[in-house]
Design a protein around this nucleic acid. Structure first.
Lengths: 338, 338
DNA sequence: TCCTTATAGTTAAGCGCTTAACTATTCGAT
DNA sequence: ATCGAATAGTTAAGCGCTTAACTATAAGGA
């Protein structure tokens, strides 16, 4: 496979000149450029990127980091959705995406991940970073790797959606429909900081109506469909009078709906259910799911754009994206006879 | 950040000795090893991987290639499922995963992808490769990059599931339940070679029972839930007597079920529906979906294991994984009064 | 006319690591 | 005792590219 030196020989110039033409930096004549480009084409030359990385310190690789914890990472359509936004920007910029899925312990991310951070392979990274246990973006910041955090483990250079506002909208929607017997399906507060913000938003909305939020029965799932079913079962066993369930993600909402159906009850006629995230199957679900849209592809795309600004030394502001109620068929006014 | 040279100075040996200790190649004494390891720890040294790649030709990077075509890649849980198997093996081997999503045209994969192939960044690759339009693994084979193909664009070094057998099982299941008024929801044969094999398997099973397969009405979706709904609508409008739908993936099956429900009909009492793939939401769907399990995580994992064998120069056999009927609640014997 | 800056291209050092070839010593077999 | 192979560690070349510093010429302003 051809090297820069081969191209230089064929074009009749030095390797430095070929390098200048490739990077379009001063100086060379148009005639020289054409000679070099002709040689590149004839030899089907591509730069050896390890050599370039060693010489220049630039790799054209971006790491996308998803901590490997809780509900298996690889069953969450939210992850794919976010990746979609990131991939689109990186492809446009000609960068390669390196996918990293560090396991987290009390001591922090695993060693393979830390070695990646020290490897000199990364021009930058985008990290989904909401697990209370440990931060994956903090070790990158400590090593001066340009890093955009999607989530809460950052004081600057982050993209978030307005989880607090989303929680408020979810609760307000249910309250506006007249519901007061409300169950909440959440997750352990050791799983995801974003969900804590959703909960505080929900609390704000309830207390603004003079309601005792702590009186709402709560169950903790683990994001999965199955856990949504199980926790709906537990909640409704103990509180058969509930007329609404607020679920902190769509998959638990779908599980809850399945369980409710299995009781012979109707959604939303007998019990309303609202989810969160607006994953791709939410709209097309048997009962199209009322949910909070949290802009997964947009946050991926915005994070990538901010990262390239950071890499290029431009000033970067953090971004909080708005959330938005998407009212579909799984919620309805509370029935008068219940 | 420390280099090998810094480690050598602190340990009082040469850089060659440090390199021998790191790679555990002859010769060095145990005393020398301890001195080097102590220096590595004290300096928090990690190898500069571009430099190592340039010197040794080895990068510890595997590319995972998913062609970016048809139903958006990032809404297919099948992709995440397969990635899960690949990631597990690569993480265990200490390799990094580079995600590549080439756009395909008549001329082949896009230029960013081809440049990646020539970049010297890859120790090997795993390519999902079933789009008739162009192969993504063929350019890699032409460049002698160790490559395992998941799919049909390969004559060797591939992992496949038994799509033909899976198609047969799907059709046999429906026929065993007594159905003869059968609709088929497939996709354009320009989208995915694997589905053509499923169709030929279905044909085989039908013709083995003396049935005229071509008499079965067929519709073409695009893998998505929405297309499943739309094509079910079209089929049932033209053939209201259908008692079964065979769908070539789960998401179209889910869409079909939603449509059928919207007519006020029951699944499976009025119409049976079978899907294919067994994506994570198939089991937990409102009507747990009868489907064909095609081992996405296993094929990812097996592909990764074969790739490391290939990289290490071991002989590699191609693998065809069995498919398996998973009978759940969306299929039932044909009703007598229909 | 002269001087400074810009243009054009080249030479060569170095990025950090691997490893072949080297020097020196030790060990085992004859 | 001798010789060949193994052991231990070192020197230094080179992987392929970037780019600082260089040489040479041209151009523009005072």
């Amino acid at each position: 496979m051809a090297t820069l030196s081969d191209v230089a020989k064929l074009a009749g110039v030095s390797t430095a000149t070929v390098s200048k033409v490739l990077s379009n930096t001063p100086y060379f004549t148009e005639e020289t450029r054409l000679k070099v480009e002709r040689a590149i084409k004839e030899l089907n030359y591509s730069p050896n990127l390890p050599a370039r990385a060693l010489a220049s310190g630039r790799t054209e690789i971006i790491a996308v980091v998803f901590p490997y914890i809780y509900d298996p990472l690889f069953t969450d359509p939210f992850v794919l959705h976010m990746l979609q936004g990131i991939e689109a920007v990186c492809h446009e910029r000609g960068y390669n995406l390196l996918l990293s899925t560090p396991r987290l312990t009390f001591e922090g991310p695993d060693d393979l991940y830390l070695r990646l951070l020290r490897s000199h392979y990364l021009d930058g990274m985008i990290a989904l970073d909401n697990v209370p246990l440990a931060s994956v973006s903090e070790p990158a910041r400590q090593r001066d790797i340009p890093c955009i955090t999607i989530g809460y483990h950052a004081t600057h250079h982050y993209v978030r959606t307005d989880d607090h506002g989303g929680g408020m909208q979810a609760m307000q929607h249910i309250l506006d429909l007249g519901h007061r017997q409300i169950g909440i399906i959440s997750v352990s507060d050791s799983l995801n900081i974003a969900l804590n913000h959703r909960l505080t938003g929900m609390r704000s909305a309830a207390e603004a109506r003079g309601l005792n939020y702590d009186a709402f029965p709560t169950a903790q799932g683990d994001f999965s469909v199955d856990s949504g079913m199980a926790e709906a079962a537990a909640l409704l066993a103990q509180h058969p009078d509930l007329t609404a369930l607020v679920c902190l993600n769509d998959r638990m909402a779908m599980g809850a709906i399945q369980y409710i159906r299995s009781l012979g009850k109707r959604v939303p006629e007998d019990i309303s259910v609202i989810g969160y995230d607006d994953i791709p199957t939410a709209a097309g679900f048997a009962t199209p799911l009322t949910t909070i849209f949290n802009q997964a592809p947009t946050s991926g795309q915005v994070a990538a754009q901010l990262l390239f600004d950071l890499i290029e030394g431009k000033p970067v502001q953090s971004v909080v994206l708005p959330t938005q109620l998407v009212s579909r068929a799984s919620t309805a006014p509370v029935s008068r006879e219940s």
